[in-house]
Structures are given as C-alpha cells and as structure tokens.
Design a protein around this nucleic acid. Structure first.
Length: 425
RNA sequence: GUGGGUGUGGCGAAGUGGUUAACGCACCGGUUUGUGGUACCGGCAUUCGUGGGUUCAAGACCCAUCACCCACCCCA
C-alpha cells in the first residue's frame, strides 16, 4: 500500500455510512421540530476570523489550526469549529435585519491539527445549533432541551448534563483574581500543567484530573460565588426552565469551557465508556462574539456535538438500527441474448423506481443465485435460453424457495404488483 | 509537542533462530452438463510495515525509519 489517507481522517464505507445517515436524519428532524434552519458555510475562512472569534489564548488557535496561504498570499484556515463562521455569516448577510432571533443549525466536517486518539480526529464532524439575537434565559433552556430531546430520540440515556455559569466579563475577571489569590500560596503543589495554567487560564485548574490539584482546589472560590446579580438571575431562570422541560442536569461549578467567547451559561454532556474523550457535546452563551468580529452587539447561544463520539456511544450501547436489505429483486441472465433481454426488463422496472439489480460479471447460474442471496434480494428473476424460447420469465422467491413462470410481456406489471404488495405488507 | 503499545494474506490470528509460514472467517471455483442459503472438496502470503545489521541460518535478535492504536495536553 503506497498512498494512505492523511493521519486522523477516515474513509466511511458502505455499512457505516448508513449509520451516519440515520444520525444526521435524526438531528435534522429534531431541528425541524424546534424551528431551526440549516446553514452551510465554507470549509475554510480567513485565518483572522478564528483568531478573533475563537480567541488568541485558546489551544485551537495556538496549535491546532490547519492554516495555509492561498495563491494570493491570503492566510486561510480550515474551519476548526463553526460558531465563528456562523456569526460571520450572520453579520455578512445582514441576518440581524430579519425577524429575531435567528435559529440555525449545521452538520459538517471540522479540522484540527492534533494527535489522533480514541474519539479524536483531525477531520471530524460536528452537529451544532446557534441562536443569535436573543439574550433571554429561555433561549439557553430551549437549546439545552433540544440536545436532551435528541439524545432521548436516539435512545441515549445515562449521560450526564453538566451546567454552569461562567458569568459576564465582569464576574469572570473577579473570579479569576480571587482564584489566583486562593491558589497563590499553594502554587508549588500543583502539577506541571496547572503551573502553566495558573497564569494562562486558572479556571482550568478547577477541573484538572490530577488528584493533588483536586485536593488543593477544595474550597476554592467557584464561579457561582462571584456572579453579579444579572448573571445570577439569568442562571437561576435557566435552571428553573430546564426543570420544567424535564431535563436531568447537574450544576457543576467547576465546569469551564476552553473557548474564550463564552459568557454566562456553559454546559457539557458526557458519556462514559467511549474512552478518555468523553465529552459528546459542549456549548453555552457568547454575548460578545458577534461584536468582537465586527458586527452589531448581538447575544448568542449555541453548542457543538461530535458525531464520531455519539456514534461511538450508540455503538457500545447497541442503539444503532440494523441495516435492512435494499434490494427487491436480482436479475439472473444466462448468455448474451438473455442479458440483453434482461437489461431491457431492468430498465422498465427501474422507471417504476423498483430497487432491482443484476449480475455484472456474466457468471454461472449458480454463482448469480448465490450473489442474489448474499445481497438480500427477495426475488431472483431468471432468464436463460429456455425462458427466451418460451417467452417467459422465472420469478424465484428466495426466502420460500418457490418459483413461478410469467409471460415475458407481463413481467414488468407482475413484478410491480408483487413489489406493491410487499411495501404494503 | 510528550509518553506507552502494536505492525504476519481482504479480516481475525498462530509462530519466542533452523527444512515447503498453522488455523478460522471472508472471497472465488467445484460436487455430471440451468437453480442460492447447509455440507463436502479445492484455490487464495515466492513472504512476515520498510531499510540496514548480527548469524552457517531471522517473521522471530539489534538499530533505524514509517504507519496505526492508546494516553497526556486540549477538546467534539
């Protein structure tokens, strides 16, 4: 094998693609029911969009972007996430001039230059929702319950929904300062990573997996302690509405999200049993983002979920639908004359939109029947020398092992009738 | 970027220095000329990721290299 696919990418082959289609259809139907419309934006954008939109301090921008210069020396980047793009599209297409809020969803590939591992790819796929132009707590609650509802429809239970409020920029700065002050005396005890995090992003120390860091942070000021009145009221309202919608959640004061743009509500959904990368959905409110990228001040709320990880969860929990046979009948033709006649018969059947197929290797009768069986065809339509002479077609029921002869000139009509019966049964 | 693991036919997998590289699945063909799914028979790796080295002798030992997997970081 000489040329291989790029690291961290995958070929989705028949058998797997059907699972993706099932997942995507379920996502689309939930969105339709909730009144969200699909948006499709470019696979790549000006690098600056992500630098400003996602944030200069984030790992995504610092070390994970697929960036290249195009032939006009413009710096372009394959999209690592879509919230920034959707906001850009909102501004660029003046969607703020339409009835507000604008409720959008997307499904598509994202790109991040990382070392692949279980549940992590360089090209991966996200489904996401963004609501722009409404700062009400109901928005937060509606979007989170949409997520909840999707999982319910997929049969995914026993997952954890973590909710928190990281506050507005004011409470956030306050919290950060308090936290650094709290940790300052015990900074030596922190692990190496947390030492780095102390200056860069002290909030992350709160959810470090290291046991000693966990111990050090006991009693540390949480985001909740520093919320201003507005943020606090908002958060309370969100939780109340989630309760009304029947969403089972857990307030996790240590939940912080890695992207710079989050304000107020942040949430995450985790599933065990799919490896170390257990977050299958993450999102929250981002009231400053649209303005940050040059648009009018516009509140926003959204999330992204990873299709690969959800599929992994559905897999281990055996929640993926079984593949159904797609073929109704298989033409078995023997000899060139029969093949010609059969080809004509198939064409006729196909104009009626019947799922029918034929042997393409001119194999023996036996081999063709075997193939028909493998492909899960219900009927084999046998046409050989004898049948041509008698001007008949043998229709063999492969599940019953019985066969009948019908006049060739009535075959299309007969098969069509059988198909209708099968569909209605 | 760091650490660990693995690399034998389409897939799974024996083999731990010595003649022709097990086996299972899949695939293809056959079991008297035109009837599948079961059974039986046969076929299917001049070769063990790649390149060097040690040795009379290497898939097995050593070195390098590449690829994949897992974990950290971070995230979907």
């Amino acid at each position: 094998m000489t040329i291989q696919r790029p690291k961290g990418t995958q070929d989705l082959l028949p058998g797997t693609v059907e699972q993706w289609q099932y997942l995507e259809e379920t996502m689309r139907s939930v969105c339709r029911d909730y009144g969200y419309d699909e948006i499709r934006t470019p696979m790549f954008e000006a690098t600056e969009l992500f630098q400003r939109g996602v944030g200069q301090t984030t790992d995504i921008v610092n070390k994970e972007m697929y960036t290249f210069l195009d032939k006009g020396d413009r710096s372009m980047t394959l999209r690592p996430e879509l919230t920034a793009s959707v906001c850009r599209a909102y501004v660029e297409n003046k969607l703020y001039g339409q009835p507000q809020p604008v409720k959008l969803f997307y499904i598509g590939p994202m790109f991040r230059y990382e070392r692949p591992q279980s549940g992590r790819f360089r090209q991966f796929h996200q489904f996401g929702v963004e609501v722009l132009g409404a700062d009400q707590a109901v928005v937060d609650a509606e979007v989170i319950s949409l997520v909840w509802d999707l999982y319910r429809r997929l049969g995914l239970t026993q997952l954890e929904v973590h909710v928190n409020s990281v506050g507005c920029p004011v409470c956030r700065t306050k919290h950060r300062a308090l936290l650094q002050e709290f940790l300052s005396t015990r900074r030596e005890e922190l692990c190496k990573d947390c030492g780095d995090r102390y200056d860069r992003n002290p909030l992350r120390i709160l959810d470090c997996k290291n046991a000693t860091c966990q111990a050090v942070t006991i009693g540390a000021p949480t985001t909740r302690d520093t919320l201003c009145e507005d943020c606090s009221t908002h958060f309370g309202r969100v939780l109340g509405l989630l309760g009304v919608a029947g969403v089972v959640y857990r307030v996790n004061p240590r939940l912080v999200r890695g992207l710079d743009y989050y304000t107020k509500t942040a949430f995450e959904v985790m599933v065990e049993e799919i490896g170390a990368q257990s977050a299958i959905c993450g999102g929250g409110r981002y009231d400053g983002l649209v303005e940050e990228i040059g648009g009018p001040p516009t509140p926003g709320f959204g999330f992204a979920m990873g299709l690969e990880r959800i599929l992994a969860a559905l897999q281990v929990k055996h929640l993926l639908p079984e593949e159904k046979p797609k073929l109704f009948a298989m033409l078995v033709a023997l000899g060139e004359k029969a093949q010609t006649e059969g080809f004509s018969l198939l064409s006729a059947l196909r104009t009626h939109e019947l799922p029918v197929s034929m042997d393409l290797l001119s194999r023996s009768l036996k081999a063709q029947l075997k193939a028909a069986d493998r492909l899960g065809a219900r009927y084999a339509l046998i046409l050989g020398e004898e049948e041509l002479e008698k001007k008949v077609l043998v229709i063999r029921d492969l599940t019953l092992g019985e066969q009948i002869e019908v006049p060739l000139n009535q075959a299309v009509e007969e098969i069509h009738k059988m198909y209708q019966r099968g569909v209605n049964a």
